[in-house]
Design a protein around this nucleic acid. Sequence first.
DNA 1: TTTGTGCTATCTAAATAACTGATAGCAGGT
DNA 2: ACCTGCTATCAGTTATTTAGATAGCACAAA
Lengths: 296, 296
Amino acid sequence: MDLQALKIFKSVAELGSISQAAQKLNYAQSNITTRIQQLETSFETTLFFRHHRGVTLTAKGKVLLAYTEKIFRLIDETSKVMKDHQIPRGPLIIGSMETTAAVRLPSLLSKYHHDYPEVELTLKTGPTEENIQGVLRYELDGAFVAGPVEHSHLIQQTVVEEELVLITDTVHPPLSSIKDIQNRTLLVFRSGCSYRAKLEQWLHQEGIVPNKTMEFGTLEALLGCVSAGLGISLLPFSTVEPYVQHEKIRYHSIPSMFSTVETVFIYRKNEFMSTAFIKLLDMLNENMMKKSIITI
Amino acid sequence: MDLQALKIFKSVAELGSISQAAQKLNYAQSNITTRIQQLETSFETTLFFRHHRGVTLTAKGKVLLAYTEKIFRLIDETSKVMKDHQIPRGPLIIGSMETTAAVRLPSLLSKYHHDYPEVELTLKTGPTEENIQGVLRYELDGAFVAGPVEHSHLIQQTVVEEELVLITDTVHPPLSSIKDIQNRTLLVFRSGCSYRAKLEQWLHQEGIVPNKTMEFGTLEALLGCVSAGLGISLLPFSTVEPYVQHEKIRYHSIPSMFSTVETVFIYRKNEFMSTAFIKLLDMLNENMMKKSIITI
DNA sequence: TTTGTGCTATCTAAATAACTGATAGCAGGT
DNA sequence: ACCTGCTATCAGTTATTTAGATAGCACAAA
């Protein structure tokens, strides 16, 4: 059963004549006869009564005509959707760090979903390294990760510069010396998180060996534990700002050399980009223009 | 867009590899590459990301895959329905005289519909001549008409022998002589009705010229008017039996030469018969076996 | 760096299918 | 008896599909 045969069948059925269908479709009459015979053979049935005035559908032919119309409606829809490059649609899978997902993305994604409701937007949070691999393996269309990311197959685009701050519970006194945190437990994201790397880098330089480490998968859990006094952590100021304002936690600036971290959006180079994806990039750039630099 | 291309596309999408799809489908790899390229050209888009480990669907590719699966489900259903010669289904259009439809068909059609609910059964009532034309023009699959019908393209099968009786209102005295009906109005079906022909034939032989004629389209209307004393008519005894029992009308036997009329089922010769139709024929024959001869 | 492996893309030629044109046959209408 | 309008069949042509060989690319191992 091929679509061309069904198209021919439909014409014959509607015109009630093989000759007329041939004329209409610009085919030789013999060809139409043969194609109809092929259809009949493949279905092991008779589709038309042949008579001297043309042909008439049999009961089974009428059933096939109904199905044929259904099939063509579906095919037409497929064509239309596939050739429509205007309206973004289809799946769009974005990766993100937990922190970016919590603070930077909600407004962006909500606006995106509002503007392009036909896009099936999925957000997968995970550490930077995992996200980079995801993009390279085509599992993610793009990802928000801690920059810089230098990879010959990836394009990176700075989204925002975050300032990392050390966070403690509110009982903890203002930091007078780095040594104050010597004995505190470090609360970090599961491995792969670049903030953890920054923290470890800083502590290493200061000659501090962390006492203990606890790993978390989600931001809420980590912040809750910091607030409860379980330990300390290093996170972007924007992420902890509401907690600071509600006096759940206290933040402490750290040397700017270690505090600055840029969040970048990465995606594959030299690849076909769906309209849905292009629109996301557009929205990101637009956002960059409007955004004021975040400082403390 | 042809189904073969979609099938290839589906395999490639599922295996994530052009080479593997080629192997699975027993094609040369070059062929698969080309067919995918053709699809991409026809949709003016990119369906796969090509990389050294195989291929991965783009967003548009994923959309096409979803549609492809939908299309194949529909195609499979079509094939299944078309190749299923066991279960009668589809349209079945039967013609019938008004009288047969009223008395003989209800129980038959109700049983048929119960046994083969997937058949779209349509009953069209009309005079014998119209029904014959309908069958010859493929507008009806078969019809119950007054026999005998001799036509080189038709098969006729006797269903029942009806006995025509003259009917009058209950005030009318038993017929002592044919002359009694000389001045009564004749109530008949619209032209084409074979009972009317019988009646006219009989009256002609008796040298009676009917006074007036009224034409009716439905049985109920005609019987109602006979009952009200507007005139007389000639109908099968089986049709008027309940009216006689309720003493709404009175019947009078007529010479057997003119009274006997057979109802036959006609259908086209030498044609493909749908399962639905064959089942109807079976049911008719079965009915004939069981039926006792109707006499007064 | 070089080499090998595993993949896709491209090209030409062969195989397959779709299509044409001419002809036959059939049933009604003139 | 002849003409008309239709479908079926057959041989030959054209177009499409497929195969096979080869190139090229990117990674991974030596």
